[in-house]
Design a protein around this nucleic acid. Structure first.
Lengths: 250, 250
DNA sequence: ATGATTTTAAATGTTTTTGGTTGATTTTGA
DNA sequence: TCAAAATCAACCAAAAACATTTAAAATCAT
């Protein structure tokens, strides 16, 4: 791994996440403590980052308000945990589908050095993937203005031309009886197709999505493995044994 | 393998991937370590690439802050003027194509209230258009990592299924004899097709692009109207009367 | 064909990068 | 507050990458 590659990765992570600890960088970049430390030192000397005890942060990241609000309103930590675990399931040289959504977006920094091709229907994901220099293909179609997801019948049609090793999906709701669902039927159609075109489908969902039902059905629970942080035991019992569930926080 | 061939290859790779190791180049080009190193050295002396320990990278791939400086030092004002004039040419309810590039990006804020449908091959433009709540369609295809433009034969194919009222193109170079050109052949193919699919094509180019020639030809000058800030009078005389030129600063 | 020039590959020693070790410093939790 | 744990800074030796030289091979001009 080239020094400049590492530095660029660090800058990108900081740009996307704001703060990072050295330990995480060591793991993500397969580099020794000294190496990471040296990189951080040099980046600091170029005043591209700000070093803090245990890691580094974006320069001028002292807007407590904005960050604290942002971070605490959403369960960022759980999402990152889920994302990291999901990324660990990916093998080298695979072609994966990355669905729109914040949890799948958190997977991006963990996708390096796997020689992947990533296909996505999210403009935001595509941009982040490019930032991390990961070869990426965007599905064509109409942009949903609120989420910047790419949807529509032509997009579904394009998806059907591809085949993925693994698909990583977000969801708004999953329910033991009604399966995965989402408010927008167009979005649901897209998700359904992507899952069909993958050898293995994974749904990333934090506990707030558990037991919920939304307007448009995407698939039955059994059609994907669930990766989540925690599920109430009584719901866990109700879910058919055919569905694989991983709780990353345990 | 000719020296120039190797250099072209190296530049292409860097343009798409951003960074490359010497070892990879040795393998890809069947050349010895010294040869690759010499190529890199010469390319660096021409300041076409930036050499780093272990390989080379695209110039300025790392300098966020320099990028910011560059953005502000560059002729933003001219670009915005050009963009605003270009946007004023658009009628209500049209379908327009927006090419990748900084000048066309500057058009986005002027596109509201026109009831347009915008088609683009740029992830960045798509995101900005969505922010401005402008109905947008993205072309599908591979993302060029350094510019986030969407390219490739499938993208060209998709473009051919559409028809635009107007197409607004960026360019790296235009020349009275050699027409419009750009460094990346894939990008050129995309531009050529987009212009063919539009009833009217406009090329937005500030004066720095005037009289320049780049690697891959996009089209003849006569195939689009030029919108620019200023053109030297003697070049203006050389350009055929068939080409419409608008100088917005006057 | 011949000699001049360019391009290439191998060999040399030098510099840079890297991961581990040391002891000092800071943070954490009782 | 104190002690354990984590992090840090400084140093060292091995490995990787570098610049330079040299000679062979290919290309070019005459």
């Amino acid at each position: 791994m080239l020094t400049e590659e590492r530095k660029q990765y660090i800058l990108q992570v900081l740009d996307h996440e704001g703060i990072i600890r050295s330990q995480e960088l060591m793991a993500a970049l397969n580099a020794s403590e000294s190496t990471i430390r040296r990189d951080l030192k040099e980046l600091e000397e170029e005043s591209l980052i700000e070093r803090v005890h245990g890691g580094a942060q974006k320069i001028g990241l002292l807007d407590f308000e904005q960050n604290m609000v942002e971070k605490s309103s959403e369960n960022v930590h759980e999402k990152r945990q889920i994302a990291q675990y999901a990324a660990s399931l990916i093998d080298k040289n695979e072609v994966i589908y990355l669905d729109a959504g914040t949890t799948t977006l958190a997977m991006v920094p963990f996708l390096r050095e796997k020689n992947l091709t990533v296909v996505t229907n999210s403009v935001e994901h595509a941009s982040a993937l490019a930032d991390f220099l990961i070869p990426t293909r965007v599905i064509g179609g109409n942009i949903k203005l609120t989420t910047k997801a790419i949807l529509g019948s032509k997009s579904v049609q394009e998806l059907k031309q591809y085949r993925f090793n693994k698909a990583f999906m977000g969801t708004n709701a999953f329910h033991e009886e009604y399966g995965y669902s989402t408010p927008d039927p167009e979005e649901a159609a897209m998700k359904t197709t992507a899952m069909e075109q993958a050898d293995l489908a994974f749904v990333l969902a934090d506990h707030t999505k558990c037991g919920q039902v939304s307007f448009a059905k995407v698939a039955d629970l059994s059609q994907a493995a669930i990766i989540t942080d925690q599920i109430p035991a009584e719901i866990l019992r109700k879910i058919s044994k055919k569905t694989t569930i991983t709780e990353v926080s345990k």
